[in-house]
């Protein structure tokens, strides 16, 4: 859902002055509200997984997480995604100092790491399907794929979003005074990473 990102109304439009009532950029405030909404979305998905976890174990056709999910591999994925948050921070820091070159390098690195994560997830899904864990094979399959699939979709949207920022950065250029697009993309990106921290901890690490 990238409609928030594409809303480019200048803050306090038509007011004749650029200040907003709260002193926060309107688009930033809107994105915070949207992230609040997304938090509830992922909370519902995660809670469903946790509710069905014991039910899955008690079923005759149970499939247990630790038999299927490769922790070492996904720990690598988690490291990649966390690293991408760091490069995102570095990218924003660079544009704040008007350092165009480093801004592009770090943003490119973020996009690259995001793509690596997605590639890893596609590989993982493919692998799991080959081993017999599918959407329909057990409660684990149903809850796991819907939750991680929606997270992956959010990562994919984030990659597209950051790519658009990259493209617009090359085309019209951002500067130390004008980089709200980058900050917003970064906020969303950190949120998606944070969700992965919760997913990784609760689904892969919990026994």
């Amino acid at each position: 859902m990238s409609e928030v990102s594409t809303t480019n109304a200048p803050a306090g439009i038509g007011h004749g002055h650029d200040e907003t009532s709260m002193g926060v950029d309107s688009r930033k405030l809107g994105l915070w509200a949207f992230i609040g909404s997304e938090t509830l979305f992922f909370a519902a998905l995660i809670v469903t997984y946790l509710i069905f976890k014991p039910v899955n174990e008690a079923r005759p056709e149970n499939q247990l997480p630790h038999e299927f999910l490769a922790i070492n591999f996904t720990a690598g994925l988690a490291a990649i995604l966390l690293a991408s948050s760091l490069t995102m921070v570095l990218s924003i820091a660079a544009i704040r100092q008007n350092n165009q070159r480093m801004f592009r390098i770090w943003l490119g690195a973020t996009i690259g790491l995001g793509l690596m994560f997605l590639g890893g997830q596609v590989y993982e899904f493919y692998h799991l399907y080959a081993e017999g864990l599918t959407l329909g094979s057990s409660l684990l399959g149903s809850t796991f794929f819907v939750l991680t699939g929606f997270h992956g979709t959010h990562v994919a949207i984030g990659v597209v979003w950051l790519s658009m920022i990259m493209w617009r950065g090359l085309k019209r250029g951002y500067s130390a005074n004008d980089h709200m697009d980058v900050e917003l993309g970064g906020m969303y990106w950190h949120f998606v990473d944070l969700v992965w921290v919760a997913v990784f901890t609760l689904i892969y690490l919990l026994p």
Partner: peptide, 29 residues
């Protein structure tokens, strides 16, 4: 609204993509 959306996603997957979120005979609820 996210709660409704999640419920609808589960139902869509149950109906079309073989999941079992609400199917009691397969462990759903």
């Amino acid at each position: 609204f996210p709660s409704l959306t999640v419920a609808q996603v589960f139902l869509l997957f149950d109906r079309n993509f073989g999941t079992r979120f609400f199917l009691a005979d397969q462990g759903g609820d």
